[in-house]
Design a protein around this nucleic acid. Structure first.
Length: 459
RNA sequence: GCCGCGGUAGCCUAGCCUGGUAGGGCGCCGGCCUGCUAAGCCGGUGGGCGUUGUCCCACAGGGGUUCAAAUCCCCUCCGCGGCGCCA
């Protein structure tokens, strides 16, 4: 949410950013807000004066009653004033609600480095890391996607997409999941269960080393928390609601972690607060019909370790870079080749002022796909959730900045591992950093093993 | 789920019965005093801005009664205690 004062005092800053975002139809909202705000303040002035009158009279009545003097005419006058106040209060409430309606639906102000673009095709790659394994049939497309700035090795044989690998490895049962729960659900099985847990623990340990507090948050939150962290569109498109209760299944640990300090004033010396949330994530994926319908890339539930930071405003951009770096380190240690993209205005969403995605190369699909999303939400969430800080108790509290970034989302990391680390015979090599968590170094095709984690080199 | 007791500023608390517009303490900021520090004393320390006021709002949230509500009534939320149920 934006500060009404920003709109009041610098409406052109807000207008220019709406233009940058291509939200032209919302420009008239600014004019309406300014108009309503003016009326609201005029009305408030009148109400305040009337209230002062009423208060004076009420005190006078009290005095006179004690003295045994008549109060009838004062009572009459007071009643008149109260009736007038009530009339004005109705109006002011209407103005306030309209102002709030707009305020709660305006996007965050973007950082100056956010590129202008219509959709995800105009995100700007800013960094490439690692050596990609590229099937010769994908080479031309790869060179285009990597802008020739990335190392690669040519494969003569064609790596399989993760959907096929799941079948070969006996790693998931998607058909039965569809029977039981519907499409985009899965029974994850055998070694992939261990791999899922290993990835989580790997990410968590890394973040604990960096001073993050590990947290298992509530998996359901109240509506005011969701309203605080996200846009109203998300209620339709991504968030599951529990019937008959004011509870929503979290689409990410970001949400309960943002709610953690709602309505609090944080002691400045405790900032930055670093949290590593670990949770399942539930997403409706409405409006994505036809996209990634097979496999576990885009699913209704998955596990994720999430970085969440409450930072001082003047330090938040530094933290944004650090969160990205933490996520990059994880993928570097896994040995997964990736690029970082700076998300353009058309793909940014309303909450973040700036967002980076990490996209790993998917050798089977021949595309870079999103595995990490790293956002600085500045004070947009903090204002909605009323999260403030101050250094000295006599100071006026200021809003904190909130940041969040994926560390590892297991479903997507597993897809990347299956596509990039498969051998021609169907074996999948496990990254060395995970061995101590998995207890095995590779996953064999189902016909070459007798059961989960059998016939493999144990550590 | 039932019963009881609570929720007042960053923290602790008075006021509630009996309605008259929130008082004290800690902490913090400034000043006075003083070789220095501490103590002590004085002032400030929730939100609003339109006129910075002898102003308005604010006592978990919402509604009601009243000229007037922290106070009385109703609903919701949260916390604590007891009972019940339970992995």
């Amino acid at each position: 949410m934006l500060d009404i004062k920003l709109i009041r005092e610098n409406p052109d800053v807000v207008r220019q950013d709406l233009i940058k975002r291509g939200e032209i139809e919302k420009l008239k909202w600014i004019d309406e807000i300014l108009e309503l705000d003016k009326k609201w303040r005029e009305n408030l002035k009148k109400i305040n004066n009337l209230r002062r009158e009423r208060n004076k009279i009420a005190v006078e009545i009290g005095k006179r009653k004690k003295e045994g003097k008549p109060v009838d005419e004062l009572m009459e006058k007071s009643k008149q004033i109260v009736a007038e106040i009530e009339k004005l209060e109705e109006q002011i409430e209407e103005f306030k609600q309209k102002i709030d309606f707009y305020l709660w639906r305006l996007p965050n102000i973007t950082h100056k480095s956010v590129p202008i673009g219509k959709d995800d095709t105009e995100n700007v790659p800013i960094k490439f890391w690692g050596k990609a394994r590229v099937w010769k049939g994908h080479l031309e497309s790869f060179l285009d996607q990597s802008q020739g700035k990335m190392e690669y090795e040519i494969l003569e044989w064609r790596p399989k997409i993760h959907v096929d690998m799941l079948e070969i490895l006996g790693g998931a049962d998607l058909e039965r999941a569809a029977k039981v729960s519907g499409s985009r659900f899965y029974y994850l099985m055998n070694e992939l269960v261990i791999l899922d847990l290993a990835l989580l623990r790997f990410a968590l340990d890394k973040l604990i080393d960096k001073g993050f507090i590990p947290v298992i948050p509530p998996y359901m939150v109240r509506r005011y928390v969701e309203e605080g962290v996200t846009t109203f569109d998300d209620f339709e498109n991504v968030i599951y609601k529990l019937e008959g209760e004011d509870l929503y299944l979290i689409p990410t640990a970001e949400h309960p972690l943002a709610g953690l300090h709602a309505n609090e004033i944080i002691d400045g010396k405790d900032l930055p607060l670093l949290y590593a949330g670990i949770s399942p994530c539930f997403r409706k994926e409405a409006g994505t019909a036809g996209k990634d319908t097979k496999g576990i890339f885009r699913v209704h539930q998955f596990h994720k370790v999430e970085q969440f930071v409450y930072a001082r405003p003047e330090e938040s951009w530094e933290w944004h870079e650090k969160l990205l770096q933490n996520a990059e380190e994880l993928f570097q240690e896994l040995g997964l080749p990736y690029r970082v993209v700076n998300i353009c205005t058309g793909d940014l969403g309303y909450v973040a002022a700036k967002k980076y995605d990490i996209e790993t190369w998917m050798a089977g699909q021949g595309r870079f796909r999103e595995v990490v999303s790293c956002s600085n939400c500045t004070d947009w969430q903090a204002r909605r959730l009323n999260i403030r800080f101050r250094d000295k108790t006599h100071e006026k509290p200021k809003f904190v900045h909130t940041l969040n970034s994926t560390a590892i989302a297991t479903s997507r990391a597993i897809v990347a591992i299956l596509e990039n680390f498969q051998e021609e015979d169907g074996t999948v090599k496990i990254p060395k950093v995970l061995w101590k968590y998995t207890g095995f170094k590779e996953i064999l095709p189902v016909e070459r093993k007798k059961g989960c984690c059998w016939n493999q080199e144990r550590i």
